[in-house]
């Protein structure tokens, strides 16, 4: 089988498992005391419950139960809790607190099939996020023009972070020509390590941020998109356009919990040679983290504070006292 096919099948199986998770089946009365607790409650967006695989004769294609039995919440009222119940409750409590794969059980010395498939799926999503492209349609809709860093392709992007921190010569010219000079706030977007993050979140963060800045009467420059950029790209942009504040909305390095997390890096007067301690970041902007629309609203007031104190990062903390 080729790799694509494997991935497709994995995805199908995982989707099937997830769709079952949504079905809540009333448990017949005699099963009230059933000891099996299926791991339902998880904080992660795309986590799936542990599933019992039913052994079937060879050639039978039906591997999974089609329904997930779930304890009715009011059953709790009827039974006296036993030691194991308490234990299950404790694990469920812990699982609620983290999207990490804790207390997922095991089969012998290996993870359960569904856990393993989920892991493979999440890993594949992470890889896709790095190698994916931002749809042109989103940039068109927001009216961003596109420029490029000095990086040639994704392989070089990963190998040479330094090249991702500079604009190519042609792009420099375009930015200089097309952008408003010396704005109060310059907004920049870049795919960074997750095109998916931009695809999912850029529009909401951007629109909410612009609204917030407008409410505060803060002047905004001409926003553009940099392909394959790094955070410190803001230094060169600072040199070219001389803004008070640069905010770069960039895809985070994807993890196994989320491959579509966006970060906003902000710096007061970034210029070539700016030290890292003067940058600040609001990370974890995605569906399962800070809602993108709320993040944009918060970023506006954060920029207001940076302008007030004329400092960002550690310098801002110092000035605030």
């Amino acid at each position: 089988m080729n790799e694509q096919l494997i991935e497709k099948i994995t995805k199908m199986v995982v989707e099937k498992l997830q769709s079952k998770n949504l079905k809540i089946v009333d448990l017949p009365k005699e099963n009230e005391q059933m000891a099996v607790t299926l791991f339902q409650e998880t904080a992660g967006e795309n986590r799936i419950p542990e599933e019992k695989v039913i052994p079937t004769p060879l050639g039978d294609v039906k591997f999974f139960k089609t329904t997930v039995e779930e304890k009715k919440p009011n059953n709790i009222l009827l039974r006296t809790p036993t030691k194991e119940d308490k234990n299950d409750d404790t694990l469920a409590e812990l699982r609620k607190k983290t999207p990490a794969r804790i207390a997922v059980g095991r089969a012998g010395s290996r993870p359960k099939t569904s856990t393993w498939l989920q892991f493979r799926f999440d890993h594949a999503a992470a890889v896709d996020a790095v190698y994916g492209e931002v749809p042109q349609e989103i940039l068109n809709r927001l009216g961003f023009f596109q420029v490029h860093s000095r990086v040639m392709d994704k392989e070089e992007y990963i190998r040479r972070p330094d090249l991702g921190r500079r604009l190519c010569d042609e792009s420099k010219k375009i930015v200089k020509d097309k952008c408003k000079h010396s704005p109060t706030v310059q907004i920049v977007a870049s795919n960074g390590l997750s095109a998916k993050a931009i695809e999912e979140n850029l529009e909401d963060v951007f629109l909410s941020l612009v609204q917030s800045l407008k409410n505060l009467s803060i002047d905004i420059g001409t926003t553009f998109y940099v392909d394959k950029g790094r955070v410190a790209l803001m230094d060169e942009i600072g040199e070219i356009l001389q803004p008070e504040v640069v905010i770069i909305l960039i895809g985070e390095r994807p993890g196994l919990v989320s491959a579509e997390s966006l970060s906003a890096y902000i710096c007061y007067k970034p210029r070539i040679g700016t030290i890292e301690a003067d940058r600040m970041v609001v990370s974890n902007i995605h569906k399962g983290g800070i809602p993108p629309v709320e993040a944009g609203a918060y970023l506006g007031t954060l920029i207001q504070k940076i302008l007030k104190y004329e400092a960002s990062g550690v310098s801002l903390v110092k000035k605030e006292g």
Binding site: S208, Q211, S212, N215, I290, P291, V293, E294, G296, A297, Y298, G300, T301
Partner: peptide
């Protein structure tokens, strides 16, 4: 949900 600021703004 965590939407108060954006809704208010």
């Amino acid at each position: 949900t965590d939407h108060a600021k954006v809704l208010g703004q």
